[in-house]
Every structure is written in structure tokens, then in C-alpha cells.
Design a protein around this nucleic acid. Structure first.
Length: 574
RNA sequence: CGGGAUGUAGCCUAGUGGCUAAGGCACCUGGUUUGGGACCAGGAGAUCGGAGGUUCGAAUCCUCUCAUCCCGACCA
């Protein structure tokens, strides 16, 4: 392809408002442009990279027997009400009326739409298993889009959905997807960390995500270098901690103005680790009170699993008041017995480590009142004790006792073992050989294309620009001639014809310096330079973008030297 | 949704109450060039994000508003 026939508006300076390196390089290299917050156009080069990512994904999905489909970006709100997610997805989902007032949804994800598609054609257990995937636009009205393609509002995702006769079948398929994902990321030259993950609003009982270590990441992944355990900080487990101590007698203390763990800690002169922290959350049905140690944080993901339905967010002050709670002195101690139980639907969950910590300080659920030396089991009972605290680096690994390490990471892919929750809530069933209803067991599998591109650039660049992995590069080679030599230009022309779609031929009337700079910025794996001198020796210069080494190779050997098949038969007209 | 920052030509910047808003890059014309954003000459391009106000006079000060980016909240 001739450079002059493409649209590659490279930029010399970093545009105002562009901060992250990956975003900067994609904009300056002429790959993407932003039209508004979290909204991106792909230019010809960017689209070629995206197509390469998609090609790899199609290859991996097809190997799994996946069938490519495409369901609409817009769906009627009814399908979201069927699954019960109309209420739980929240403000990410854009809802709008059509001309006659029906409510439509810009899909943030496509489980519902695919289930509706499958409903029409899959009637018998003999039709299972089935695996569909698509490469489709999603829209999530993110609270805060950031870092360019890393967190866009409109983005393209490869999403796949599998349907199985039994849980065991799903469970057998799941690792195959896992390994297909691992292969995909390897082909993108991305060093991913597969990690146990939460399920968020997608749902399911088990999930893994594929992350890359990156400053652009918004997730924390907990890793054990000793045994290889890796998990998102939302769900990571640590070894249990016990700190045996003599139980002291419970006592009341007056704590004026002690709102929050920090002030209690200061006022009493004690570390946060011996203070209980109590929070109340909204849940799908009612409220949940959660208690962790003051030096820990609650994982809403873990809490959701314990109560069996999504935690929707913190309860507001009005809700607390209506429950008879004092917002500044929240506590599971001293609750009106009517609050707990079915009437007001508040459940109490105590973190296991907090439960095992002796002589804790609790608020008293009365203004200016705390209790010291509270011991669970002796001083009060809680129906549910579970692991609901986030694990931080420095804890011991629950698998091997090794030291856990935490790092910032960027999520690129996520696979969910959904089970039958969607098929049941949406009444998707087939008939078994005995005529009974069978609700298929489902898996859902996603990879964000734009985010993969951003992650690749984030980890494959140098001060001069992008360094594309071979499989993703918009063109394998950048080609240019130096000097006025007619022979050199003739050779460049013939190489451009021969290499066709594998080469970007810089045929512009630009200074040689500009071409070198743009070539590095665009980041093709190889650069071929033809000069007056080499044109007389039957050689060309071959520059490796990654190693930055230049060597001379025979002009007739170029295809092999850049890793292309030697013979292509008929050459494409350009 | 809270806190902060920034909006001046296609891009990056200067200008912080005073004359016709300055420069670099990019663009157009002509010429010279060709191993790292090359050079010379000429040209075009800006209602200084928008609205309102203060003032003899506003890119500059005030108020409101919009947009973008960053931090947080929230969320895959």
C-alpha cells in the first residue's frame, strides 16, 4: 500500500489532554482519534490492527467450534427485565425511548440478546452444546472514561456464549476457553496473568480474568510467586490469621464525635486492627450489614457471594435512619431486634478475621457510645461469619503460605462460568430424552479489542513510537527509498508491488528524516530501505524495529527475511 | 457525583488590563535538498471554548456555562 493513498495523520507533538503513553502513541501514530469523552474513531491503520486482533480471536474461537453471529447493539428493555438485570446493571446502561415510547437499551453486554437468539433455534438437548460468539460494539456510560482506549464508553468486544447439557459439560468446556484465551494473548505478545476473578453484574459462580501488569490498570491482582496463585483483589483469599489473646471483660466507653475508624483509633490510642468497621449496603432485597476489621476493606464482590445476590452499593443515610441505625455509630451490637430478620430484611455478615480477633472495639449503635473488648460468641452472636475482606499484599497465601504480592493490572479478558441462572431467569430450556425441561448451563467469555490494542502499545513501545508484534502490525514492513537515484526508486516500486498488502510504501515527497520518524512512530516490525548504493549491489537494508539493528540482505530474499512465504504467485495490482 | 487543572489557527505553545494577538510545526506557491521531523523566499489560516458583566479599553479581571484531562466516588 502506498502511504500517499492512505490517511495517516501522524503528529509531532503530544496533543493536549492526552496523558497515557499508549493513548499518546496511538493518536500520534495516526491510529485513532477521539470525538468525545470515551468515544473513538479508528483510522485506516488502527482499523487494520483491530482487524488483526479480530482475526486472531476468530481463529481461536473457530477452533473451539464457535459460530460467529451478530446480535443488535440495541435491545428492548423487556429482555433485560426477564433476566432481572434491568435494575442491577445501573447507570452504565443507556436507556432511551423509541418513537412510540417503547423503552430501548444500548447494550453494555449481550447475554440477554444471545439467549433470545438461541431460544428460537435450540429446542432439544441434542442441539447442545452450542457455542456462539460475536465481535460487536458495546456501550457503557462509564462514570469515568480514561486512558484512551483503556476505558472507552463505546468499545468493541469479542463476546462468546456457550450452552451445555450439564454443569459437568460446562466445566469441561471452560478450561478449553481458558487455554484459547491464553493462546490468543500469547499471539499478541502479551504477558497475561490469569487470575481468579469476581463476577460483577454479569453473574455466575466462577470467573477468571486475564490481566496484564500495567500502570493503566484499575484492578489489583494478588499474586503468590511461590505457588502461582493469582486472584483479583476483589476475591483473593489469604491465609487465616489468628492472634490468640486473653479475653478481657467487655466495657462501655464514651466516644464523643468519634465518627469513623480513624477518629476512634486516635481517640482511644489503639491501632485500627482492633477496631471493628461496620458498613451497610443496599442489596437486591433489603440491606446487608457487613463488619470487617478497621485495617481491612470490604470486598463487595465477596459480600455478594455470601448473601447470594448482588450488593448494589452503600445504603444512604435516610435508609440507615429508617432502619433505626445511627450512621456514625453503626454496629451489629444493640440493634432493635425488629431490624434483623424478615421484617426489614437486613442480614448481618461478619468477616472471619474480625470474628477471630479478640477484644475488638465496636460502636454501640448509639451516639457517642463504643464498646471495648468485644468478643464474638461471648458478647453477641452473628448468623453469618464469612471471608468478606479484601486481601492486600503482604498477607500469606492460603494455598502455600507464601508471601502474597499485589500489583496494578489491566483486565483484558474475562470468562464467566454462569451456570443456569440466565437460562432459568429467562426461561430458556430444551427438552431432555425423557421430555423434561433442561435449563442449559452457560458460560460467557469476553475480550475487549480496544483494550487489547492499548495494552499491546503500553507494553511495546520505545521513545520513538510503537513496536508492533508481528501478528498485530498494520503492515509487516515499512518501505522507503533514499535519494534521487532512479534505480533505487525503481527497486522500491517493485518491492511495493511484490509485497503488496504486507508493506507500507512511503512514497511521499518528504525529507528522509520525516520518513524515518514516521516509520518509527507507526511501528511496523521491519523497515526496508533502498538507496542508490544498495541498488547497485542487489541488496536492500532491513531494519528490525524491535532490536533496532540494520543488516543488508539480498533484494530477492526480502520475503523470507521478513518472515513471509517465499512465493505468492500472482502479484496484486496496487 | 465531589475535588483539581486546562481551553489562544489543523497540532504544540507565548502573551496575565493598552497599539493591528506572537512563534514553531503542518498547509499552499516557487526554488534548493535527501541517512533521523532539512533549507531559502513568499502566502493563507484565529469571532482567543461560549454567554453575560466590569472598564475609555478585556485573550487577560468578575459571574455563569460548555468541553477535555487528572484524582476520588462509582463501575468491569
Amino acid at each position: 500500500m502506498r502511504y500517499s493513498r492512505l490517511f495517516i495523520p501522524t503528529l509531532r507533538d503530544r496533543p493536549r489532554g492526552v496523558r497515557s503513553r499508549a493513548h499518546e502513541l496511538l493518536v500520534r501514530g495516526g491510529y485513532v482519534r477521539s470525538i468525545g469523552q470515551g468515544l473513538f474513531s479508528f483510522l485506516p491503520l488502527g482499523l487494520r490492527v483491530a482487524r488483526n486482533v479480530e482475526r486472531l480471536l476468530r481463529e481461536q474461537m473457530d477452533l473451539l467450534g464457535g459460530l460467529e453471529v451478530s446480535v443488535p447493539v440495541v435491545s428492548p428493555s423487556e429482555v433485560w427485565k426477564k433476566s432481572g438485570r434491568f435494575e442491577t446493571v445501573g447507570r452504565d446502561m443507556v436507556v432511551f425511548p423509541d418513537r412510540v415510547g417503547r423503552t430501548l437499551v444500548l447494550s453494555p453486554t449481550h447475554e440477554e440478546a444471545v439467549i433470545e437468539l438461541v431460544r428460537d433455534g435450540i429446542k432439544s438437548y441434542r442441539d447442545l452444546p452450542a457455542f456462539f460468539y460475536q465481535i460487536q460494539t458495546k456501550f457503557r456510560d462509564e462514570a469515568r472514561p480514561r486512558y484512551g482506549l483503556v476505558r472507552a464508553r463505546e468499545f468493541v468486544m469479542k463476546d462468546g456464549y456457550s450452552f451445555h447439557r450439564t454443569f459437568a459439560d460446562l466445566n469441561n468446556f471452560f478450561p478449553k476457553v481458558f487455554s484459547a484465551y491464553a493462546q490468543f494473548f500469547a499471539r499478541c505478545d502479551l504477558d497475561v496473568i490469569p487470575a481468579e476473578a469476581g463476577v460483577g453484574y454479569i453473574g455466575g459462580d466462577k470467573a477468571y480474568e486475564f490481566l496484564v501488569s500495567s500502570d493503566l490498570g484499575e484492578d489489583t491482582v494478588i499474586v503468590c510467586d511461590a505457588c502461582g496463585y493469582a486472584a483479583n483483589g476483589d476475591v483473593a483469599r489469604g491465609a487465616t490469621e489468628t492472634c490468640p489473646a486473653k479475653l478481657l471483660p467487655i466495657a462501655e466507653v464514651t466516644t464523643p464525635g468519634c465518627h469513623g475508624t480513624a477518629r476512634v483509633s486516635d481517640f482511644l490510642g489503639i491501632p485500627r486492627s482492633v477496631i471493628a468497621k461496620t458498613l451497610v449496603f443496599r442489596a437486591a432485597r433489603g440491606y446487608v450489614m457487613a463488619v470487617v476489621r478497621g485495617d481491612h476493606e470490604i470486598s463487595e464482590e465477596k459480600l455478594s457471594r455470601v448473601i447470594g445476590s448482588p450488593v448494589l452499593g452503600p445504603a444512604d443515610r435516610d435508609a440507615l435512619s429508617s432502619l433505626g441505625l445511627i450512621p456514625e455509630y453503626l454496629s451489629p451490637i444493640g440493634l432493635d431486634s425488629d431490624v434483623v430478620g424478615l421484617d426489614l430484611n437486613m442480614v448481618i455478615v461478619l468477616d472471619r478475621i474480625a470474628a477471630d480477633t479478640p477484644n475488638l472495639v465496636f460502636a454501640g449503635n448509639e451516639t457517642d457510645l463504643h464498646y471495648i473488648n468485644v468478643n464474638i460468641g461471648r458478647d453477641f452472636e452473628v448468623e453469618t461469619v464469612a471471608d468478606i475482606a479484601r486481601v492486600k499484599g503482604g498477607r500469606s497465601c492460603s494455598q502455600c503460605g507464601g508471601l502474597l504480592r499485589e500489583q496494578k493490572a489491566l483486565e483484558l479478558g474475562h470468562i464467566f462460568r454462569l451456570g443456569d441462572r440466565f437460562s432459568r431467569s429467562m426461561e430458556l430450556f430444551v427438552h431432555t430424552d425423557t421430555g423434561e425441561r433442561l435449563y442449559p448451563y452457560m458460560g460467557a467469555y469476553g475480550i475487549g479489542i480496544g483494550r487489547v490494542i492499548a495494552a499491546v502499545v503500553d507494553s511495546h513501545n520505545d521513545p520513538d513510537g510503537i513496536i508492533w508484534p508481528a501478528e498485530l502490525a498494520p503492515y509487516r514492513c515499512y518501505l522507503m527509498a533514499i535519494g534521487p537515484s532512479a534505480a533505487a526508486n525503481r527497486i522500491a516500486e517493485s518491492l511495493a508491488d511484490e509485497l503488496g498488502d504486507d508493506v507500507l510504501f512511503d512514497d511521499r515527497r518528504e525529507s528522509i528524516s520525516t520518513k524515518f520518524k514516521d516509520s518509527d512512530m507507526v511501528g511496523c516490525p521491519y523497515r526496508i530501505v533502498v538507496t542508490g548504493e544498495t541498488s547497485t549491489t542487489g541488496e536492500i537494508e532491513l531494519y528490525d524495529r524491535r532490536t533496532r539493528l540494520t543488516r543488508r540482505v539480498a533484494r530477492d530474499d526480502v520475503r523470507g527475511q521478513v518472515g513471509l512465504a517465499q512465493s505468492r504467485g500472482e502479484k496484486n495490482a496496487v
